[in-house]
């Protein structure tokens, strides 16, 4: 059974809550019986060795697992107290309100502007697009680098810029929560640092759940850290506790780099 330390939700309903969530691909169980609370406006990091199910678990929060025909999700994922997996819930609405940034930058083969404007456009945004695009790019700390070339193809940006563009693209939909799946894993150290600074700023406005295989990164940016191992939640608590005085031996072994 997982050890869960004190999680401060500030007295309100948490932004997200997983209740005994299990995910299987066919007969193979990838995530088993994980329960976890994500408080509002906090950064929660999911860490663990590769293949531990952290990315799969992350994808439960915006129903991206729906797209894999063999995947089945059991348990409940509560978003402001409501189960995302109720049959009458439209996954499209879920994904609009819970954004996602992927492991590798995946800008569309369109202009920088059109990339950011994509979300508002499909979601029927009838306000003024340029301010929305500018605001999103500013939030993603990219505006200063691209403001004079919004019509250039997104493919002309560097990898780090592309990833920030993808963050801006996610923010343009005005989600309440942003899920990040190892957003810096394909970037160089300088670009990584920029993304980390950005995440720090973003938590003012958004709730963030981030998967990372980089423990220093988790320690630097997150408020809470969950350690998963072989599909199970081992330990969850304030980041400081997990990294300095974990209760579980396996957690300690992992965060001190003794296995991975």
């Amino acid at each position: 059974m997982a050890i869960v330390h004190d999680i401060d939700t500030g007295g309100s309903t948490p932004a997200l809550e997983a209740k005994r969530v299990s995910v299987s691909y066919g007969s193979k169980r990838a995530v088993s019986d994980v329960s976890l609370v994500v408080p509002r406006h906090r950064v929660v990091a999911l860490i663990g060795p590769s293949g531990c199910g952290k990315s799969t678990f992350l994808r439960c929060f915006n129903r991206m697992n729906d797209l894999i025909p063999s995947a089945t999700v059991e348990g409940e994922v509560l978003f402001h107290g409501q189960d995302l997996y109720r049959p009458e819930i439209d996954p499209v609405e879920v994904r609009r309100r819970i954004g996602m940034v992927f492991q590798k930058p995946n800008p569309f083969p369109k202009s920088i502007f059109d990339n950011v404007a994509f979300g508002p456009r499909i979601n029927g945004f009838d306000g003024d697009l340029p301010p929305r695009v500018e605001e999103s790019l500013r939030q993603a700390a990219l505006w200063d680098e691209v403001s004079d070339r919004l019509d250039d193809s997104a493919y002309e940006l560097s990898g780090g810029q592309q990833q920030r563009l993808c963050i801006a693209r996610a923010l343009a939909v005005r989600p309440e929560i942003v899920l990040m799946d190892e957003p810096a894993s394909s970037l160089d150290p300088i670009a990584t640092q920029k993304i980390e600074e950005l995440i720090f700023e973003l938590k003012e406005r958004y709730t963030i759940v981030i998967v990372t295989h980089n423990m220093q990164q988790a320690a630097r940016i997150s408020d809470y850290t969950a350690f998963l191992y072989m599909g199970e939640l081992i330990e969850y608590g304030p980041t400081e506790v997990i990294f300095t005085r974990p209760a579980e031996e396996r957690t300690e072994a992992y965060v001190t780099g003794r296995f991975g």
Binding site: L67, M100, F102, N106, F108, N123
Partner: peptide
């Protein structure tokens, strides 16, 4: 690439979009 489809879906696009 599949990643473009995933990107669009994560922004709340329907499969048709």
């Amino acid at each position: 690439p599949l990643s473009l489809r995933a990107g669009a879906l994560s922004l709340g696009a329907t499969r048709m979009e």
